[in-house]
Amino acid sequence: MTSLLSKSAPLALAAALATGPMVALAPSAALAVPAGGYADLVEQVSPAVVFIEVTGKAKPANFEGRLPDNTPEELRRRFEEQAPNGGRDQQGLGTGFITSVDGQIVTNHHVVAGAETVTVKLPDGRSFEAEVTGSDKATDIAVLKITSDVELPFVAFGSSEEMRVGDEVMAVGNPFGLSSTVTSGIISAKARNINSGPYDEFIQTDAAINRGNSGGPLFNNDGEVIGVNTAIISPGGGSVGIGFAVPSDLVQDVVADLADDGTVTRGWLGVDIRPMSDEVAEVLGYDTPRGAVIERVSDDSPADEAGLRNGDIILSFGDVEIFELRDLTRAVARTNPDDAAEVLVLRKGQEVTLDVTVGTLDAQDA
C-alpha cells in the first residue's frame, strides 16, 4: 500500500531593506517545490502509475474537432491516434493509475475505446489482463479492473477545486512508450473550455505531456491526483507546454458511477440552447451576454412538462447562475434524475421561476 507524503514545511525567505530591518517572507507550501526536488514524491507515487497496452480491430474514434478559427494550433485530443490499417489488429498505448488496493484503475476513454484486449503493466514488471469496468466518452474517463493476489500500490485523489493557478504540479506517464516518465510544471489556468465536449472545465498545465501520457495522473505536491491528463494543443504532435487534464473533482464523480454499474447517470432537461447575442444583451441592458436561450423544447420532456418555452432565456438553474451554455449543461447533468430544481427564466422581459423535475439523459445522447 502506498502512503502519501505530507507537505514539507516551507523555508522562510529573508529580504533585507536598505533603510529598515530584515523582513521574513513565508511562501505557501502548496506553491513550493518539495525540498530537495521531486525525487521522494516520485518514489511514493510512481509504483501506482501503470503502462496500458491496447489491441483491437476497430480503430479508436478520432477527435476531429478544432479550436476556434483564430487559434493557429491544432487541438490534438487523441494522443493515440493512428492511421487506418485495413481492419488489422491495432495497438495503442496509454497511461493509467491504480486507485485502490484491489486493482481499480483510472484512465482515458479514448485509450481503451474499441479495445479487444487491455494489458496493464506495473513499474515493477508485473503484467495483468484488465477488464474495462465502464467508460464515459463525454468526459473521456474509463475505469479498469485487474486482479492480484496481493495488495497493490495506489494513489488517492485530491481536490482540484482547491488548486490555484500557479501551483506546482507533477505528471507521471508513458510518453511515446517511455515508461515512468516524470515531468513538472505549474497550473497555467483552470476551467478551460477547449470545445471538445459539453462538460469541458479542464486544468491547463505547462508540465510536458505527450502521446502516451493519456490517462495519466497530474499530482499536487502532496502526491494526490488532482487531474487526469487528456489533451494537448500542438502544431506538430509534441508538447509545447499547453496540456489539459480533467479535474479530479469531476473524475471522482464519474469513477464512482462507472464503478457502480459501468455507466454514468446524468440529468436531462430536454432543450436545445444557443448563446445570447451581443445585440440582445445590449437591448436587455446586460454588459455582456449571459444565460442560455431556448431554441427548441422537446415534446414530453422535463422542460416541456415544467412549462419552458421557445425563446425563454435561462438565467439560473438551481443555485447555479448561467453565464454560458456549459454552465447549464453541467448543472443539469450533475442533478440526480427525479430531483426537482428551480429554473429562473427571462420571458418577454419578465423574470419567471419554474419548477422542473429532471429526467435521465440517455447514454447515446450524452
Score class of each variant (00 low, 15 high):
Gly158Ile: 10
Asp299Val: 13
Thr205Val: 10
Glu342Gln: 15
Asp222Lys: 15
Asn62Cys: 02
Asp136Arg: 11
Thr353Tyr: 03
Arg88Asp: 09
Ser188Pro: 00
Leu25Asn: 03
Glu321Arg: 14
Ala331Lys: 02
Glu321Cys: 00
Leu361His: 02
Lys348Val: 10
Gly238Thr: 15
Pro235Cys: 12
Ala9Thr: 14
Glu162Trp: 08
Gly216Gln: 04
Asp287Met: 04
Asp89Lys: 12
Tyr38Ser: 05
Thr117Val: 14
Leu11Gly: 09
Asn210Ser: 07
Ala231Thr: 15
Asp287Tyr: 05
Asp124Ile: 14
Ile313Phe: 01
Gly291Met: 05
Phe154Gln: 07
Leu269Gly: 09
Ala16Leu: 14
Arg330Phe: 01
Asp40Trp: 00
Phe128Asp: 06
Asn174Ile: 11
Thr335Cys: 07
Asn221Arg: 13
Phe323Glu: 14
Val150Phe: 09
Thr133Gly: 00
Gly87Met: 05
Ile209Val: 15
Val358Cys: 05
Val332Cys: 04
Gln252Gly: 08
Ala29Tyr: 03
Val112Thr: 08
Thr329Asn: 12
Val182Met: 04
Asn213Ser: 13
Met163Cys: 08
Arg88Lys: 13
Ile242Tyr: 07
Ser277Cys: 10
Glu161Leu: 07
Gly56Gln: 05
Leu75Cys: 00
Leu258Pro: 03
Leu31Asp: 10
Leu5Glu: 08
Lys348Pro: 00
Val143Asp: 03
Glu168Asn: 11
Arg290His: 01
Glu305Val: 14
Val358Tyr: 02
Gly65Asp: 01
Val293Glu: 11
Gly103Cys: 08
Arg66Glu: 14
Asp339Asn: 14
Met22Pro: 00
Val172Lys: 03
Thr335Arg: 01
Phe219Thr: 11
